[in-house]
């Protein structure tokens, strides 16, 4: 059975806007993004491009991030790679309580 844990990872107010940060939770590398609207998203910090690479350093526009190494456009909401490229990045549930950002893994 899978256990679900909620991990506190950052202070909401300290998160930079439109600049991803890299978070390591045990073996999971996670990229956390706070976008202009104030929403926070968490994705696996790995480009779905077959050659890999990180996502946390990508350029953020609206609710999308561009893979910094291969320029694929990826939805922060569902991890879906935008056409004409294809693929999907794992996303994590994020919640904010009392200025604390939690990720469910």
């Amino acid at each position: 059975m899978k256990t679900v844990s909620k991990v506190g990872v950052a202070h909401y107010s300290a998160l930079p806007i439109r600049s991803g940060i890299a978070i390591q939770i045990k073996n999971d590398a996670i990229a956390l993004f706070k976008v202009t609207s104030g929403e926070v998203f968490a994705l696996e910090d790995r480009s779905p491009h077959p050659k890999g690479g990180v996502l946390s350093e990508g350029l953020v526009s609206g609710k999308f991030v561009y893979c910094p190494v291969y320029d694929w456009k990826i939805s922060l909401e569902d991890g879906q790679v935008q056409a004409p490229d294809q693929g999907q990045v794992k996303t994590y549930e994020v919640s904010v309580e009392n200025d604390k950002v939690y990720i469910t893994i």
């Binding site: 844990s5 909620k6 990872v9 950052a10 930079p16 978070i23 390591q24 990720i103």
Partner: peptide
């Protein structure tokens, strides 16, 4: 802090 850190978060189950 903003560009050159990697945050370590500990796994605490709620």
């Amino acid at each position: 802090d903003k560009y050159y850190s990697r945050y370590q978060a500990d796994l605490v189950t709620n």
